Lab assay of single mutants.
Amino acid sequence: MQRGKVKWFNNEKGYGFIEVEGGSDVFVHFTAIQGEGFKTLEEGQEVSFEIVQGNRGPQAANVVKL
């Protein structure tokens, strides 16, 4: 599992990016966020996640808020 901080997340569009220290930013879609109810992330929030290869490159999967 990787760890990072949410760079930004757009609730209306349902996606954003996670900053990884020493690495490239990783795309995150709301469907990758674990948990119940409305799935969103806050700027600066710490998360753990896996990186998978999506249609447009690397993206976050199994995102857990820390």
Score class of each variant (00 low, 15 high):
1 M>F: 10
1 M>K: 05
1 M>R: 06
1 M>I: 12
2 Q>V: 14
2 Q>R: 12
2 Q>H: 15
3 R>A: 10
3 R>Y: 15
3 R>T: 10
3 R>N: 07
4 G>V: 00
4 G>S: 05
4 G>L: 00
6 V>N: 01
6 V>T: 13
8 W>R: 06
9 F>I: 03
9 F>G: 00
10 N>D: 06
10 N>K: 09
10 N>G: 08
11 N>A: 08
11 N>G: 07
12 E>C: 12
13 K>I: 07
13 K>H: 13
13 K>E: 04
14 G>Q: 03
14 G>P: 00
14 G>N: 05
15 Y>T: 04
15 Y>I: 04
16 G>R: 00
16 G>H: 00
16 G>V: 01
17 F>R: 04
17 F>C: 04
17 F>I: 05
17 F>T: 05
17 F>M: 04
18 I>Y: 00
18 I>H: 01
19 E>F: 08
19 E>S: 14
19 E>K: 15
19 E>G: 15
20 V>Q: 15
20 V>D: 08
20 V>K: 15
21 E>A: 14
21 E>V: 14
21 E>F: 08
22 G>Y: 07
23 G>I: 09
23 G>C: 15
23 G>H: 08
23 G>F: 09
24 S>K: 14
25 D>P: 06
25 D>L: 04
25 D>G: 03
26 V>R: 03
26 V>G: 01
26 V>L: 09
27 F>M: 04
27 F>Y: 13
27 F>V: 03
27 F>P: 04
28 V>E: 00
29 H>C: 01
29 H>V: 01
29 H>A: 01
29 H>L: 02
30 F>Y: 14
30 F>P: 03
30 F>V: 08
30 F>D: 03
30 F>K: 11
31 T>S: 12
31 T>Y: 02
32 A>G: 11
32 A>F: 05
32 A>R: 06
33 I>G: 02
33 I>P: 02
33 I>A: 02
33 I>T: 02
34 Q>D: 15
34 Q>P: 07
34 Q>T: 12
35 G>W: 04
35 G>E: 13
35 G>Q: 13
36 E>L: 10
37 G>N: 09
37 G>W: 04
37 G>P: 05
37 G>T: 07
37 G>M: 05
38 F>K: 08
38 F>N: 13
38 F>V: 08
38 F>H: 04
38 F>C: 05
39 K>I: 04
39 K>N: 06
41 L>N: 01
41 L>S: 02
41 L>A: 05
42 E>K: 14
43 E>D: 14
43 E>N: 14
43 E>A: 14
46 E>A: 11
47 V>S: 00
47 V>G: 01
48 S>G: 12
49 F>W: 01
49 F>M: 13
50 E>D: 14
50 E>T: 14
50 E>I: 08
50 E>F: 10
51 I>V: 14
51 I>G: 06
51 I>S: 11
51 I>Y: 15
51 I>R: 12
52 V>I: 11
52 V>M: 15
52 V>T: 14
53 Q>F: 09
53 Q>H: 08
53 Q>T: 14
53 Q>M: 14
54 G>V: 04
54 G>K: 09
55 N>I: 15
55 N>W: 13
55 N>H: 15
56 R>V: 05
56 R>A: 07
56 R>W: 03
56 R>K: 13
57 G>M: 04
57 G>H: 03
57 G>C: 04
57 G>E: 03
58 P>H: 04
58 P>R: 10
58 P>V: 11
59 Q>G: 03
59 Q>V: 10
60 A>I: 01
60 A>M: 01
60 A>P: 01
60 A>V: 03
61 A>W: 12
61 A>K: 14
61 A>Q: 14
61 A>D: 10
62 N>A: 10
63 V>L: 11
63 V>N: 01
65 K>Y: 05
65 K>V: 11
66 L>D: 05
66 L>H: 03
66 L>C: 07
66 L>E: 12
66 L>N: 05
66 L>Y: 08
